[in-house]
Design a protein around this nucleic acid. Structure first.
Lengths: 229, 229
DNA sequence: ATAATTTTAGTACAAATGTACTAGTTTTTA
DNA sequence: TAAAAACTAGTACATTTGTACTAAAATTAT
């Protein structure tokens, strides 16, 4: 009987419980409120126990960052069997927004994190370089399929890529400042804003596909910043 | 003679020297490396002396934030005698980029700052609301003057405004991650990227004015992320 | 000049943090 | 079952931080 209770509690091993609680605290309280002791106290375990699993908070963060990257990769592979480029891009982008939201502390405190864990910065640079390449590939593909207008001003699509990469990393801090709400409605608002960047470049055909995709989506709660409930 | 030396040293009053050194450290070392003691030590004064002028680091940050806001306002007023809307917008935006760059720690550690100093978050929300209004006004003005295309997709210009506001706040963290360079060339790169957001919305006439403005500018050193020297 | 005010130096204190260590306890392995 | 490994609790220590306080020095005002 007692063993039964215990095993229920231990279905999640201590290590995983630490990661869960750390993620919760990091997302809700912020980087500098989280310490080995605050996590241990919340879980009712000793600080010494925690240091056995993770040397310090930075190690936990590094592990959570790797989790994020793994989830992003998983999403990417699910999209291998693509129907059309544009729809795939739209779906994948929105999915990624929810993954980032789950680990939102990373983008919230990203500069502080990269200062403390240089490996994260190095890895992130490569991640962005990879996303840059994917975007470029998708855009050329969509131009060939007549979904995107051919480039009118020189280097314009290269700029669009960088603009959207920045927006894709910056919406979470922006949400933290301009919204009190922390629900999925906010994520969808920013995903919509992000995807809207491509609209002025769409052809008639592209716009039609875009609208088809939009119609499948639930109606947005927010159309601009809203801090009132 | 000694008095002379002393007065040279005190041309900048202690209070101003503290602000200068704090800004330098915050920009270069980051928020969590800066303390009353680190500033006092760098200036060769006692921590007790520093607390006389500023209760703690947060108070210094709040003062530096107000300095930033004052400089932004000053730039805005210099632009009152506008020649044309578009050129004015381009010039003002680039100027603002350099002002933000001077106080770049604020946007670098913005979330941490707003968590510690709630007044900054409240003020910033109002600042953004104001900028939102200015953008909207400028856009309608430019449409009326035939510089911008009329809105094709519903709500598209509202999205453009939000997108550019986010980019306008996010380029400094982005620069911190993707560039090792800290020179003006980086600022101009991002200013160019920011202003490029409006390009797909420009009419022939607008594009001509945009290109005229571009030609007046020095050639850009960067066209994309570059970490090598 | 002298009193009042402002500025500065120096110190002390409590709280929090990462780290290291020891000594038990539980689980796994042989 | 016994030894080995994995896990947990608890404590102690050196640092760092904001804060508060006193006393001295410098400046300003009267």
């Amino acid at each position: 009987m007692f063993l039964c209770f215990k095993s229920v509690d231990q279905l999640l091993k201590t290590r995983d419980k630490i990661l869960d609680e750390a993620l919760r605290q990091l997302n809700e309280e912020g980087l500098d409120k989280v310490s080995i002791r605050s996590i241990a106290q919340a879980l009712g375990i000793s600080p010494g126990n925690l240091t056995y699993h993770f040397r310090n908070v930075d190690t936990i963060i590094q592990e959570l960052y790797l989790e994020l990257v793994r989830e992003l990769d998983a999403g990417l592979q699910r999209m291998e069997n693509a129907t059309t480029v544009l729809t795939t891009l739209l779906e994948l982008s929105e999915d990624n927004f929810f993954v980032f939201w789950k680990y939102r502390f990373i983008l919230l405190d990203f500069i502080a994190i990269t200062r403390r864990i240089t490996e994260v910065r190095d890895h992130f640079r490569r991640l962005i370089a990879q996303r840059h390449f994917q975007f470029k590939f998708s855009i050329e593909h969509m131009i060939a399929e007549g979904l995107l207008k051919p480039e009118e001003v020189d280097g314009q699509y290269d700029k669009l890529i960088l603009q959207s990469i920045i927006l894709g990393n910056a919406w979470i801090p922006d949400a933290h400042i301009h919204f009190d709400d922390r629900s999925d409605a906010v994520v969808r608002f920013y995903a919509d804003l992000f995807l809207g960047m491509i609209v002025p470049y769409l052809t008639e055909k592209g716009l039609a596909e875009y609208r088809t995709w939009l119609d499948k989506r639930p109606k947005l709660r927010y159309k601009s910043y809203r801090t009132d409930p």
